[in-house]
Amino acid sequence: MTTTEVSRSIDARGMPCPGPLMTLIGAIREGQVGDVIEVLSSDEGSRTDIPAWINKAAHELVEVVQEDGFARFVVRKAR
């Protein structure tokens, strides 16, 4: 479990690629600097796509937690 306070949680489970990433990008667009966004994704492609995008966009990947059948990505909007 994450200890960071989550500002917005997105349940993108069942959404095919690139849905979870694009939903995260939308949330980052709408959010404020410092917001922590959590994305739940069951899509395998998210494991590479989401960290790669966060790296390019210079936000912070707080943690990735593998749950039963999906992964939880916790992201902080850094700029």
Partner: peptide, 9 residues
């Protein structure tokens, strides 16, 4: 917008 040219891999 993605890490490839098109939404579908």
């Amino acid at each position: 917008p993605l890490n490839r040219a098109f939404t579908i891999e």
